[in-house]
């Protein structure tokens, strides 16, 4: 089943993105790609079984809500995080209150 292989490849992309990315926002994107790939694997598994299996569908729905919650928290933390090397127009490192 092609979608299972696709899930594996997406997992690899997400993982490499997580480790190579400099910007924290990109790390959040990578984590989202990672979880999307796991969900894809689950649903591809459900597609293969006979009769069609609803449990992975429900699990993935729950997982999507959990992921969006964690993404929201991660983004909220991210915008409060000082980013190393960031400078303002005058070239001084910026202070965050």
């Amino acid at each position: 089943m092609m979608y299972m292989v696709l899930a594996g490849a997406l997992f690899g992309i997400g993982l490499s993105g997580l480790f190579s990315a400099r910007h924290p926002l990109r790390k959040v994107l990578s984590l989202n790609v990672l979880s999307a790939s796991v969900f894809l694997l689950l649903v591809a598994v459900a597609r293969q079984s006979e009769p069609l299996d609803a449990v992975p569908h429900a699990i993935v729905l729950t997982g999507i809500v959990v992921t969006v919650s964690t993404t929201a928290v991660a983004l909220a933390l991210l915008v409060r995080l000082p980013i190393r090397g960031r400078q303002d127009a005058a070239g001084r490192p910026k202070e965050r209150p």
């Binding site: 997400g14 997580l18 984590l31 796991v38 689950l42 992975p56 997982g63 991210l78």
Partner: peptide, 25 residues
């Protein structure tokens, strides 16, 4: 510190969930 813990725990969860899906399959 919270940020790096968040990244670590989310990556850990993803790996765990990947294992769970393999076992379910």
């Amino acid at each position: 510190a919270a940020w790096s813990y968040l990244l670590a725990t989310l990556l850990g969860s993803s790996l765990y969930l990947l294992g769970v899906s393999l076992l379910y399959g």
